[in-house]
Simulated scan of single mutants.
Amino acid sequence: MTPELKTIVQNIEERQPLARGILAEKFHADPAKDHRSIYRNRNDKLGIDFSVDVLDFPGAQTFDTRIVRIAAGCKNELHKHAHESLFCVIDGEAEVRIGDEFLRLMSGELAFVPRWVFHQTRNVSASHELVLLAITDFGLTKAVLGNYDKRTRLAANGADAMTPIT
């Protein structure tokens, strides 16, 4: 068991809040401005143009909340990873590939991606940015596996990313 995982288990067993003394306003986020950039990839040849920002909530150990922005007519990488993901379309219309299946999502709709399933999101609009809220258990899987996130990214030559099918 990694030290990070031991800490998570210990915190759960102690039944104590991790964000004691934090003002309630710190648990609110505006996706348009309350974020920290963590990843961006653009590859015109492959039609990839997206960015990933993280919303930092106090006390979060297992949840990882991200804002994904995909440019008009573009997509993110076809990739897989150890964490589960729940996608909610905040603004726009998306086509989400999960394995070999495709879902069409409108604003307010959700899609769930299980661990280790290849997936990709495409912005259906030719003129407007797609904005997604992605909620994952990256904190938990990182505590178990270490920081494996670069393995999932095409721009970092990640082993768990592959060139998208056009």
Rank of each mutant, 00 (worst) to 15 (best):
H79K: 11
I48Q: 01
H83T: 04
I70M: 05
E129Y: 01
C88L: 13
E93D: 12
F87N: 09
H79Y: 04
F87C: 03
H81Y: 04
I38M: 13
V96C: 09
G59M: 09
L103F: 04
F102E: 11
V131F: 01
F118N: 11
H83P: 02
H81A: 05
V124F: 08
V52P: 05
M106F: 13
N41A: 12
D100P: 05
A71T: 07
R97L: 07
I48P: 01
V124Y: 07
K80H: 13
Q61I: 01
S107G: 08
E95M: 11
L103K: 09
F50G: 02
L86A: 01
A60H: 12
F87S: 02
D56Q: 06
E101N: 09
N76W: 07
F102K: 14
N43M: 04
I70E: 11
S51Q: 13
G108I: 01
S127E: 14
R42W: 07
E101H: 03
A72E: 04
V54W: 03
H119S: 03
F102Q: 08
F102Y: 15
I90T: 07
A72M: 02
N123T: 08
F118W: 14
K33S: 08
I70T: 15
A32L: 15
N76K: 13
P58Y: 08
D30N: 15
E129M: 10
S125V: 03
A111S: 12
I67K: 06
A134W: 00
H119F: 06
G47C: 09
A60I: 13
M106Y: 12
G47V: 06
N123L: 04
D100K: 14
R115Q: 10
V131P: 00
V68F: 10
V52C: 07
N123K: 04
T136Y: 08
Y39R: 10
A60T: 15
I70A: 10
D100F: 02
F118C: 05
F87L: 15
H119A: 05
D53Y: 03
E77T: 15
G99N: 10
R115T: 11
C88R: 11
H28M: 12
Y39T: 04
I70C: 10
D56F: 02
K33Q: 07
A111M: 05
F112W: 09
K75R: 15
R97W: 03
T62H: 09
H128C: 08
E93H: 12
S107I: 06
E95L: 13
N123P: 02
V113G: 00
